[in-house]
Design a protein around this nucleic acid. Structure first.
Lengths: 231, 231
DNA sequence: ATATATTTGTGCTACATAACATTGTTTATT
DNA sequence: AATAAACAATGTTATGTAGCACAAATATAT
C-alpha cells in the first residue's frame, strides 16, 4: 500500500507537461506563462471565481480547501512542487468550488487555460495527462470521503499525519514531518475542531506515537503503525 | 446473459460519445461492445478488481459505493441512463476503489477500455469528453465531502432527497421521487445509521416536509425548501 | 398464496465529539 | 527586541448520533 502510494507520487512528479509538448508548443507556453509569488497564507483563488489559468506550484506548499459550516474549513487537497492545480473548474465549465491559499511563501506559474485547451485539442499525450491526473484525484477523493466520514477522531488524525508524511516527506532526521502547520490546519485536514486536534495530538504524544515540539511533529512509530493508531 | 450487440441500436444509446466518433471508430466500438443484464442488487464490479471496460448504463439504476467500517457502506455516486462509469480506475492505472451494484434490473454496455484508450489517442473530442466528465465528478465529490462531514443528520438526509429528486426525477404526480430505495440505502447515501435514516424521515413526515408510503417518498416542500430542512 | 426473511419503527442507553471558558505560551509584526 | 495578537493546552458541559433490543410491518421467494 505504501509502495503503491510512492509509485503514484513518483509518477506524478515525473509527469511533467513540458516533455509532452513539441518545441513549438513549448514556445507558446513559455510566451504565455507568468510567474507570481505568494506570501504565507495569501489566497491564490477563491470560491465562485472564474478559473482562467492552469496553476503550477514551483516552490512552496499550497492547500485547497472549502469553507464549511460556521467558518469551519475542510482541506480537500494539498499541493507540492511541481504539481498542477486549479484547472478542474475550467474543464467542468464551472466557477471554483474550492479556495486555494499558500501555506508558506510560494511561487506559482500561471498558464492560460485557453491555451491549454487548444493544446489539448492537438496533443493527445497532454489530454491523457489530465485524464490521468483527474482520475487519480477522484480516486483519492473517494477514499478520503469514507475516511473522513466513518473513522473516529484518532483514526482521522493518524491518517492526516501519514498523509502529510507521504506528501511533504521529513526533515533530515527522517521522522519530523516537513511542514509547519497550525493545529487549526491539522484540524481542517482531519475534520475535527481545533480543540480536538490539540487534545488528540497530545494523546498520541503521551502514548509516544509522536513527539511534538511546537508545530514540529516527529512521527516515532513506523508509518504503518500510526495508520492503526485509532485502535 | 450476453445479448447480441447488433440487436441493440448502439448509436441511439451511446449518443454522448457516439457523435464524437468517426464512422470507422463507430464500427470498431460496435464490434467490441457487449451488452449484459443485471438483476436487482447484483454486483457489477467489486473493490480491488482490475478495471477492463468502460461501462454504460442503458437501462436501470446503479449505485457506486465503498464498504466502510463495520460493513457500513457509503454510496459515493448514482448512475442513471445513459451515463458512463467504471473507467476512472483504468485511467488511474489502479484497481477499483469502489464497488458498483444495480439498484434495480439494469442493462449495461461493456466497451473494452483498451479500445477506448486507443481511440482517445487519436480522437481529441473523445479525450475532452472524459476530461470534462472527470472534472464534473471531482467537483461534485468535493461538495459532497463537505456536506457529508459537516452537516447534521437532517441536513444530510435533506441533501440526499434533493439529490435523488435531481438525479432520477419524479413519478407522474410531479413530487414522488422516482426511485424505490430501502431505508438502508438512504442511510448509506446520507452517512448515517439505518435507525437514524428511519427516525429522521419520520420527523420530516410529521413536519409535513415529505409524505411517505412504504418506500415511496413524496416531497411536499419545494426542492429549495427541503434543502434547508436541517434548520 | 403462504411462509420466511428482511425491513421498518421506536425507545433507551452509551459514547464520541462539539462548544465553551480560561490560562499560559508562541508567533508575527513593528 | 518589544508587544499585541494568535495559538496551544486543558477542563467542563452539552448534545448529536451510534448502538442495541424488540415488536410490527412489509418484501421476497417458493
Amino acid at each position: 500500500m505504501t509502495t503503491q502510494t510512492r509509485e503514484i507520487d513518483l509518477s506524478r512528479y515525473l509527469a511533467n507537461i513540458w516533455d509532452l509538448l513539441t518545441p513549438e508548443e513549448q514556445e507558446l507556453v513559455r510566451e504565455n506563462t507568468h510567474i507570481q509569488n505568494f506570501k504565507k497564507n495569501e489566497p491564490i483563488y477563491r470560491e465562485l471565481e472564474e478559473p482562467s489559468h492552469l496553476l503550477c506550484l514551483l516552490r512552496g506548499k499550497v492547500k485547497i480547501f472549502k469553507e464549511g459550516i460556521g467558518g469551519r474549513n475542510q482541506i480537500m487537497r494539498l499541493i507540492k512542487p511541481v504539481q498542477y492545480f486549479g484547472y478542474r473548474a475550467y474543464f467542468a465549465s464551472q466557477p471554483y468550488v474550492t479556495e486555494a491559499a499558500a501555506f508558506e511563501p510560494s511561487v506559482i506559474a500561471f498558464i492560460p487555460m485557453e491555451l491549454i485547451e487548444n493544446l489539448i485539442k492537438k496533443n493527445n499525450a497532454l489530454a491523457y495527462f489530465f485524464i490521468k491526473e483527474l482520475s487519480i484525484d477522484l480516486g483519492e477523493s473517494d477514499e478520503r470521503t469514507v475516511n473522513l466520514t466513518q473513522k473516529h477522531i484518532r483514526g482521522r488524525l493518524a491518517d492526516s499525519l501519514v498523509f502529510l508524511l507521504d506528501k511533504y516527506g521529513t526533515e533530515a532526521d527522517g521522522c519530523t514531518i516537513n511542514i509547519y502547520l497550525a493545529r487549526e490546519d491539522l484540524a481542517s485536514l482531519s475534520n475535527m475542531t481545533t480543540s480536538n486536534a490539540i487534545r488528540t495530538l497530545s494523546s498520541f504524544c503521551t502514548e509516544e506515537i509522536v513527539a511534538v515540539d511546537g508545530r514540529k511533529i516527529k512521527v516515532l512509530d513506523e508509518k504503518k503503525q500510526i495508520g492503526r493508531a485509532h485502535v
